[in-house]
Amino acid sequence: MSLHRDAGRVLERWKAPDDAQHRLRHLYRGHLADHEDAMRRTCAPGHLTASALVVDPEQERVLLTLHAKLGMWLQTGGHCEEGDTTLAGAALREATEESGIDGLRLLEQPVALDRHLTPCAWHLDVQYLALAPRGAVPRISEESADLRWFAYDEVAGVADGSVVRLASRARALL
C-alpha cells in the first residue's frame, strides 16, 4: 500500500471528536483526492505531515522540542519521507529521531488534525500519541535547540494553541 493510499484509509476510518476536526478531516481527504503528491513536500499548495506528542503516562508529562528553525515548542514530527509507507510509521520515525528515545509505542489511531502555515507551505498535520517507555531519557537531535519534559499544566505557558489542544486531548485519552 502506498503512503498516499494509507493516509486516505486512515482519514476515512478516523472518528473525528468534534465538528471542527470533522471539517479538517473532510478538507484533508479532498486534498488527497486533488493532489497525487499530497504526501510530499513538493506539493506546493500544502502537504500532509505526521507528528506525535511523546507522553510519559507515569509521570503525567509530555516531551516538547524547541524547533531550531521556528523557535517554538512543538510536538515531534514533520515531513513524510520517501521510505515511509504509513502515516503512523512516519509519525513514529519522526518521534524516535527527534526525541532520541527508543521503544516508543504509538497509539494506533490519530488523536487530532491541525492545519497550519509554515515557511515552506501549508501543513496538514496528522497528530498521534507516542507513549514513552519507563525511565526514558530524551536526547536532543540536530533539529532541536532544546528538548524538555513539561507537566500537562505547563504546556500552555510555553506552546501555542495547537500544542495545548493536543496535550489536552492526550491527557483526556490517557
Rank of each mutant, 00 (worst) to 15 (best):
H26T: 14
M72H: 09
R25I: 01
D19G: 09
H22Y: 11
R25C: 13
D34W: 02
D6P: 10
V54L: 07
W149C: 13
A112E: 12
V111Q: 12
W14S: 00
A50W: 01
T42I: 03
D18A: 10
R41C: 03
L63I: 13
D37Q: 12
L11K: 06
L3S: 00
A20R: 10
L166H: 06
A16T: 06
W14T: 08
R25H: 10
D56E: 12
G83W: 00
K15D: 06
A172I: 05
G103Y: 08
V163E: 13
G78C: 11
A172S: 09
E36R: 04
W14F: 03
R139A: 14
R23Y: 04
L27Y: 01
A20P: 00
A50H: 02
C120E: 12
V155K: 15
T85I: 08
A38G: 09
Y128E: 05
A50Q: 00
R169D: 14
V137M: 04
E143C: 06
R41H: 08
H67T: 03
L92I: 03
E58P: 06
P119L: 08
S162R: 10
I101Q: 01
C80G: 04
Q59W: 03
Q21L: 01
C120W: 05
T85G: 10
H67F: 05
L70Y: 07
G161H: 09
R29G: 00
G30W: 01
V164K: 12
R29Q: 03
G89R: 15
A52S: 07
R23L: 15
D18P: 07
H4L: 13
A90H: 06
L131G: 01
T96L: 03
R169F: 12
Q59L: 11
A33L: 08
H35G: 06
G30R: 15
A95M: 11
T42M: 06
G71E: 10
G103K: 13
E94M: 04
M39V: 12
L74W: 04
L53T: 05
R25V: 05
V62P: 11
D18C: 13
G157A: 15
K15T: 15
L106H: 07
A130S: 11
C80S: 11
E12R: 15
D84C: 05
D114E: 10
A151T: 13
D160I: 04
A156V: 15
Y128F: 15
R13W: 01
E81S: 05
Y128M: 08
E36P: 04
G89C: 11
A145W: 02
L27D: 14
D125F: 01
V54P: 01
A50T: 06
H123Y: 10
D84F: 03
A95H: 12
V163R: 05
W122N: 11
E58D: 14
